[in-house]
């Protein structure tokens, strides 16, 4: 088991080198004729107006929030699914109840109108 993670570790390093290498080569050999104007931010042909960190609507946060809750609940279910053969009926029911509670959360968000993209 340890060895397969060693493999993954080496894979992470190599996977980092693979895209980094052409970018570095490109940085060295690619043409560079840079002027301050060229390095300015391009926003539809206008000069940049105001701050870049414009504020965003809260809808983005709500989607991220629902995602976070679902994400955590789903990871609880993976060991349950793997151990499915060893579970008594009660264990299966516990998992189904868990999913039902999860569905409840979605139902609340739906009723509240939090799922509308307005």
């Amino acid at each position: 088991m340890h060895n397969s993670w060693l493999f993954i570790g080496i894979f992470i390093l190599v996977a980092g080198v693979f895209p980094a290498l052409p970018i570095i080569l490109f940085h060295i050999f690619g043409p560079k004729r840079q002027t301050p104007e060229k390095l300015e931010t391009y926003e539809c042909g206008m000069e940049t107006v105001g701050q870049t960190w414009v504020q965003f609507k809260v809808q983005y946060y709500i989607y991220a929030l629902i995602f976070l809750v679902f994400d955590v609940e789903i990871i609880f279910l993976y060991p349950w699914a793997v151990a499915f053969d060893k579970l008594p009926l009660l264990g299966v029911a516990a998992g189904v109840l868990f999913i039902f509670l999860l569905a409840d959360g979605l139902w609340y968000a739906w009723q509240k109108g939090a799922l509308e993209w307005s």
Partner: peptide
């Protein structure tokens, strides 16, 4: 440890929601 994950997620969700609400 898995329970701590759940608690951390709940804490972040509600905490950040409060922060955003207060900010507004």
């Amino acid at each position: 440890a898995v329970m701590v994950f759940a608690v951390a997620a709940a804490e972040v969700a509600v905490g950040l929601a409060l922060v955003i609400s207060v900010y507004r």
